[in-house]
Design a protein around this nucleic acid. Structure first.
Lengths: 228, 228, 228, 228
DNA sequence: AATGAATGAGGGTTCATTCAT
DNA sequence: TATGAATGAACCCTCATTCAT
């Protein structure tokens, strides 16, 4: 099961004041990693708007300028973070998936367990990518510009919304799901509840037992809750 | 004894700062309402962080200072907004409630319909109070101070979380709910999904039929989804 | 001995929100008194720049508008305050003056005692009128505009500078004062030291005994210190 | 597993805030000096409260942000200024000190001359550091918090208060000073008079001859004025 | 590529002052 | 005359971004 390693690079010492060209050469991809991790920590601790690029750079132990060498701006790190996390989650879910011939409930449980396991492995990442902060604001459709450029918003991170929706459609078409249930609505509902509940539980695990979280989510998954 | 020297004074500083100026007479209690409404519009359109006090004031048709006569800061309007909306929603829900002797499903449907109806009545308000923006960042519990002062955050809006939880506990105790379902988790899950789905649907009503939204939420309500 | 009564009008209750004409008629001169006292308290507590007209009005238990009915602005209250205090001090000093035929030292002591007594009677007033804050900034002469309008600045409150200077001139001319001493400089010096020491001592009376303050100032008065 | 919907992003907020822009290369350590000097000029000309950070920055020929790169706020520059000046004065005084075996009067004269010379060398600095504006308001002790953090306030500049006090104690103990004189009071008095007289004289040198100032201050120094 | 001092637009907030009541 | 809500210029400060080194 893809347990994301909680990466922790201690902020490098201030790096002697280079009056200009101070530049300890570094593995570029490592720097990017450090920046992403630093950003995760900062976003998790202070929220998207509560963080600025200088802080991220400092936490990553690099100069501000370096930050801008790797990302266009704060939004881009955030987006990269979300995408990154999304991929990790997808991998984790794929790896943990129960076989298609297994009972539906087991398949759902495997999914939920995979998500929860992933979240536990790096709560900050999960929170940042899928928590309420994930979409630093999304104007209502009526307001959004047409040529709007892309980003990862919680609204449609849909790390499973689409997939869930399709799966529900199949079930519905095969008569295994109540006809009154709209697959799109249900998929959206499940992803929202799962994200919210997981973040809420991670925030204070005494709120429920691990198993209580899993079993409750399983029972509320549309495929289970509205099966016929 | 001393004749005080005709005292001379330091070139009086620019003085005349704000001119106060011609101030359109206005119904005092109306101003707060105008500010609240303006804030709702702005928050809905640009998100909490995308809005500044001057914009709210301008949109309300009053001076900046007036904004600060009514609210300590941007957070306070937001909170007032949420509280305000919460009350309205609670009233709407209470009013629309089905009688206790009605079938459980009818009770749930009445609840969902009331919420949806309320949201349709003022989508901006609903979005601002219960959408992802509702809690302008909440640090993880581990970070939050212990004696944190109560704030109207989405996390605890619980306009029904608490009530839902208690209702589920009753059902569970009376054997009408699967034991595997944790009332706290389930309540949280339902509120999250309902808020999210309603906001998502309001954003683009072509995504599903009104009835599809209602019936899906009804089917996914823990009391229905996990009844025995 | 003119012991100024430390006047203390408890801030009137908020005065019900008059939407406009709420106006409990009041003895105009009383209102002015209340404003002056309130200003003294505020200036003493927060410094000239740390206070604003609204605070003074509130502390005085009147509306802001009323403040502006009595004073043009904050500077004017301050000035009125200083002048007021100055008059009080002059009266106190005059009343306590030793007879001209008394030994010089006794005359000086009487002066110092009068000043100290006055200051003790209402430390706030003394501090505001003669402390470092007394002259809310005085640009250097080279900078000051010629047609500068009048105010009471510490620099020349000279509640005694002028008088002291003249007295020292007399003494010098009569050979009772060292010729090296410049009466203008000495007068200025004495007033400065007396103001400063008194304020300093009032601020923490454990710094010296009352008598220590008096006797030291007496010994340092030019007429005593530089007599021949 | 889920194909993440090509994520669409909230119209990126205005972005481009400060343009950073072409920044004149500059000797880094010089900037602080320039700011300090600019602050001195501004404070001297308009008083602490009459100046704002933008003005200081502009006068120094740097951007506002640069000001805040060097000082936390206006108070910090002011304090740095005072401390800086204090050091300079102490050095000047130390250097000019007469030998301990010299007559007391010569020692005092050397001190006064050093102070006056220093003040003449940079009147603005002296005025700002030791003039009435030096302590931008000091609440009465009763109001101040107990563990107040040390601040360079005129009250305690004591660039010589402490030293003067100790010297006077010695003289008093050795019987060379009148017992009625309290060393703490006398020290405070002398520093106050010296600061005040020097600022006053600098402001308009026609008020007295240079020598008149020096000799008067010498005669009024407690060690001279109250010697036995 | 890396650095970090410099930049300045912009946001939050204060407060002197006015004026309809 | 008294009132206090309303006003907006101005202030302090942050922070995204640039660029000389």
């Amino acid at each position: 099961m893809a347990q994301p390693t909680p990466p922790t690079h201690p902020a490098r010492p201030p790096a002697k004041r280079g009056a200009g060209g101070g530049r300890p050469p570094r593995d570029p991809s490592l720097v990017r990693r450090r920046l992403l991790d630093a950003a995760t920590r900062r976003f998790a601790a202070a929220g998207f708007e509560g963080v600025n690029s200088n802080q991220i750079a400092r936490e990553a132990g690099v100069g501000v300028g370096t930050f801008y060498n790797h990302f266009r701006d704060k939004h881009e790190v955030h987006q990269a973070l979300v995408l990154d996390t999304l991929e990790g989650l997808q991998a984790a879910v794929a790896e943990a998936a129960a076989p298609p011939e297994a009972p539906l409930e087991d398949q759902v449980r495997a999914l939920v367990q995979a998500v929860l396991g992933f979240a536990e492995g790096d709560p900050d990442r999960f929170r940042v990518a899928f928590g309420a902060e994930a979409a630093p604001h999304r104007a209502p459709r009526s307001v959004r510009a047409a040529g709007e450029n892309a980003t990862a918003s919680r609204a449609q991170v849909g790390y499973s919304t689409r997939a869930t929706e399709r799966r529900l459609e199949q079930l519905r078409n095969s008569g295994a799901l109540e006809r009154a249930v709209d697959p799109a609505v249900a998929a959206r509902a499940f992803v929202a509840m799962q994200n919210d509940v997981v973040c809420w539980w991670l925030d204070d695990r005494s709120r429920a037992t691990r198993d209580g979280v899993i079993e409750t989510l399983v029972r509320l998954h549309p495929a289970i809750a509205a099966r016929r």
